[in-house]
């Protein structure tokens, strides 16, 4: 039983490190990408996955706290798509143009703008 807990803890630590790497990749995407829409792509998907993995990993290192951490994870899963969606919509409506070479004709028809 004790070895099981120890193995679970080490596995949780590894999962947490992987999740933290995803968080870092998301932040790197935010830093390097050229415009808002690309940054949304990197900064919301990668950080959501990283967040969930990190929290679950932390939970596995302390299994008795897992229900509470699961509540946080559930809340993140429920709310983060909402905020990302609202941000993307706000960026389109406030008139931010996509950077050249990243749009197709259908996108231009959606946003009502010309192809840059």
């Amino acid at each position: 039983m004790e070895t099981f807990t120890a193995v679970l803890g080490v596995a949780g630590g590894v999962i947490a490190v992987i999740g933290a790497l995803f968080l870092f990749l998301g932040a790197l995407g935010i830093y390097r990408m050229p415009d808002v829409y690309n940054r949304l792509h990197a900064g919301t998907k990668a950080t959501t996955l990283g967040n969930i993995l990190t929290l679950v990993g932390f939970g596995l290192t302390h299994p008795e706290w897992l229900p509470k951490i699961a509540l946080v994870v559930l809340f993140v899963i429920l709310t983060n798509p909402l905020s990302s969606h609202a941000l993307a919509r706000a960026a389109i409506r406030s008139g931010v143009r996509p950077v050249a070479g990243t749009t197709s004709d259908e996108d231009c028809a959606l946003t009502g703008g010309q192809k840059p």
């Binding site: 803890g9 968080l23 932040a27 990993g57």
Partner: peptide, 19 residues
Amino acid sequence: MAETLVLVALGIALLAGML
């Protein structure tokens, strides 16, 4: 071991926050 990994994860998350 697990504690060290948790600290490493915190450090990487901190770097991400700085970026």
